[in-house]
Design a binder for these strands. Structure first.
Lengths: 230, 230
DNA sequence: TTTGTAAAAATATGATCACAAAATAAGAAT
DNA sequence: ATTCTTATTTTGTGATCATATTTTTACAAA
């Protein structure tokens, strides 16, 4: 049993052990730290997190509720495997959910907020140029999140993050096998549409961004990645 | 502290205490057994379920992950309140998610499966005529679920159920204040479209079903319901 | 080598308990 | 009566432990 290492994460003062375990495990999955098919144990993670089974088990149960992990009938806990068909489903769900969320956020975005989103986009490009893959991924998610969250009554964000989590493990593999990031994104187009408050154009740009970005790997490349993940 | 009663639910042999607690609480929320704003306690539910805090807390944590409950900063656990704006967001999300899920299920539905869906639709009408509101609600959900689940690689169902759960408490209130159910549904139209394997028509019918069904209460009626829920 | 069986180890589960935080109740001061 | 303070009760949190299930290992039989 090799010792388990999780990506570091700051623990704010006053945060409960459970909340910290959940946040840290969630981030680990989100950035692809676990490979598909990996099995984890409650005790093992409790040790890695320097706590006890109880709060860890609660965190794991939550993660299964949002599709990030699977409890098998055996009571084994595994990182879900992804088939090409499942991958395609996830991407199409992203497109539907996020173009919808983007459209409904447009009316609530102030110029100030758009400026901040532009700054995030610049951070993404800087991270890509520096080869900081995980940082680029996080910043890219933040770009999308800042748009969708502008809608104060927004409901979709947790669902979208659930899809992101389910894509996490495959992203991890993709990052391993892609030497340099040449991310094609439509962020500029989305920003221009936001500035014009053009809801249709925003929805279209976000949809295209997803389709041509992570979802844009051709089927052959995906199949190869997924076979490596087996 | 009045004793808490939960809708009954059969417990399959071999089901863990945690799974049972989750299933029962989930169903209770889904059929509107809890009013918005209600606060629950771990110990109280453990007593009602004749178990201990540990498995109940795990179930509650899962339910918060899918938006069915809220852990406040106070550490109090409450059934979320719903504003008119939130309600509208939920309905629009249902439309987007479910018409998408329905469209992608069409190609996988066999004639046999469609026959079963027709049978469910008849069960819905029977329940409505008999005034069995909760049964009608459950059957209606089953109608939708059977369609979406026909897609074997389907990912959206858990997200859709999350939205259903968030609508549960308002449905409970609606059921209390509507003497007789006169549910307008587009199920026949959806079934006809399924038989023709017409994806666009199926998506359209499902969208209309949601829009004109639960979502079809006019804004004034919703506002009244929501004020009662406060 | 392969297959089947039994012992051992590892693991998930759920109840319990000590502790901390929060809410409630009770009483005093204004 | 109202407000503030204090004491009591209630409640969430997290560690621990006994138990049951599962997995792994060890070993015998084919």
């Amino acid at each position: 049993m090799k010792a388990l290492v999780l990506p570091a994460l700051e623990r704010p003062e006053g945060m409960t052990t459970h909340d910290y375990a959940f946040a840290r495990l969630r981030q680990a999955i989100m950035v692809g730290a676990f490979r598909p098919g990996t099995s984890v144990t409650i005790r093992g993670l409790a040790e890695a997190l320097e706590s006890s089974p109880t709060p860890v088990r609660e965190a794991l149960r939550q993660l299964t509720s949002i599709g990030a992990l699977h409890f098998l009938e055996n009571r084994r806990i595994v990182v879900p495997r992804i088939t090409p068909a499942r991958f395609e489903e996830l991407i199409s769900l992203r497109i539907v959910l996020e173009s919808h969320a983007a459209r409904r956020a447009v009316a609530h975005l102030s110029d100030r907020q758009i400026d901040r989103i532009v700054a995030i986009d610049e951070a993404i490009e800087a991270a890509i140029l520096a080869g900081r893959k995980a940082a680029a991924l996080i910043a890219n998610q933040d770009f999308h999140r800042q748009i969708y969250m502008a809608n104060p009554d927004q409901i979709a964000m947790p669902l979208i993050e659930s899809v992101w989590l389910q894509l996490g493990p495959i992203l991890g593999i993709a990052m391993e096998h892609v030497a340099e990031l040449y991310v094609v994104d439509r962020h500029r187009e989305a920003i221009d549409a936001l500035r014009r408050r053009d809801e249709d154009a925003v929805a279209e740009a976000i949809g295209a961004d997803i389709r041509e970005g992570i979802g844009g790997f051709d089927q052959q490349a995906i199949a190869k990645l997924l076979s490596l993940a087996g």
